[in-house]
Design a binder for these strands. Structure first.
Lengths: 237, 237
DNA sequence: ACCTGAACACCGTTCAAGT
DNA sequence: ACCTGAACACCGTTCAAGT
């Protein structure tokens, strides 16, 4: 808000010549903490300690915590396997990308917090953007539509997964007690919406993972169908 | 992560008989702080001070900060104007809803932080869910598809706006200096992706608000077209 | 060039105590 | 029933100082 934001990626990283810390190790340690304990567990102090360094040593490599987050977020984008456009049809590329992004987000739930707060402007994010772009060029999109189509698929996946992970974080998949509790809570909360409640009950019979996958698939197909419709319309002109 | 989550909405709020605080005033004050200073400025201490009360008085009305966030988030959903399904076609209802949700999010950028961390299970959220549901029933969707279609539109909007607001927060729309800085940074960051950079430059000529609106519109139409295709397919059976 | 420690100005939450 | 103050265990960040 107040301070001028400056991307970590804008200046050369401080080199890690000697046996010093270096960005690579810092990011790796940060990801380990995030994977093990979640977003709020990552503090500069804890990260420093994990690296066997003073808490404030990190400020040599990074201007502030936001920049650390930028590095970690790009590390996340690096984990998302994105097929080369030349190897498959655009629908296949986008479907695979969508599923991979979704999977990587579930595997690293802290990603949602960062995506919602930190711009994705690192090299790994750009690499993905460019692959999607090439895929849409191949499909026949042109001009600004390339960028728009790419954004649409991306947005759909993020919008699907972000709130779902928020929900999972609240009602942790850990305890069985919780699951019992949810149903009771839902009954109480959704009173007054009998149809909604009925649908919720229908869903509950299913494996929740299956239900989520079904919802994701439904929407992804919608988005791709919509893109294909636009492609046909453009070809007809 | 560690603690069992329990929704604020599960138990009756403590009544505000006398001239005490009461949830309504607490939420209102919290929204004022969020609107004025952003997510990270909202602390229990500051909120208490604003209400002329001790910092810890709030814990009488709310178990913890997450529950305060739950209340505030539902207040946000209450701000999203959702048309009654009876008044228009399903495409109109969904388009209007999409645009209104988007607008409300931009007007209250803190919403993205909460949507990414707090489940939306308050009465206002449910009211919206039910209206969308009825709209899709009217459109001709049935069974689980009602829920899936609704989720698809919702997800698209969230996915579009959340990362965009993250970007805006970083490069605050405040200073002119920043805008100059962005271009230079982009040149440096996107080196190696000449086509991407060219597209970025094309976009820069436009008013950024117009560009954003265009991207949003493009995707929303895709999603609705995809839903309509599915509707036609279902009717044919 | 790289790291440290102390210090500053904050946090959320608990809990005994007040009225 | 409602609110308080002190206290606990934390934060991110700055900065002079060390090697």
């Amino acid at each position: 808000m107040s301070k001028q934001f400056s991307s970590v990626f804008i200046r050369e990283p401080r080199p890690a010549k000697t046996g010093g810390l270096g960005r690579a190790q810092i990011v790796q340690a940060a990801v380990e903490i995030l994977d093990a304990e979640g977003t709020q567990a990552l503090s500069m102090r804890k990260l420093g300690a994990k690296l066997g360094a003073g808490a404030t040593s990190l400020y040599w490599y990074v201007a502030n915590k936001d920049q650390l987050h930028e590095l970690v977020l790009d590390e996340f984008w690096g984990m998302v396997d994105t097929p080369e456009p030349e190897d498959a049809s655009w629908r296949e590329v986008l479907t695979t990308f969508g599923y991979n992004l979704r999977e990587t987000m579930y595997a690293h739930p802290w990603s949602t917090d960062l995506i919602g707060r930190i711009p994705s402007m690192g090299p790994n994010a750009f690499r993905i953007t460019d692959r999607l772009r090439r895929s849409f060029v191949q499909a026949g999109f042109s001009g600004i539509d390339i960028y728009l189509a790419s954004g649409t698929v991306m947005c759909y996946v993020l919008g699907q997964v972000i709130p779902d992970i928020a929900f999972s974080k609240a009602y942790g998949a850990d305890q069985l007690d919780a699951k019992v509790g949810i149903d009771e809570q839902m009954d109480q909360l959704a009173a007054g919406y009998p149809e909604m409640l009925a649908e919720y009950r229908d869903q509950i019979c299913m494996d929740p993972d299956v239900a989520r996958a079904m919802a994701f698939d439904f929407g992804l197909i919608c988005v791709l169908d919509g893109l294909e419709a636009r492609l046909r319309k453009a070809r007809r002109l």
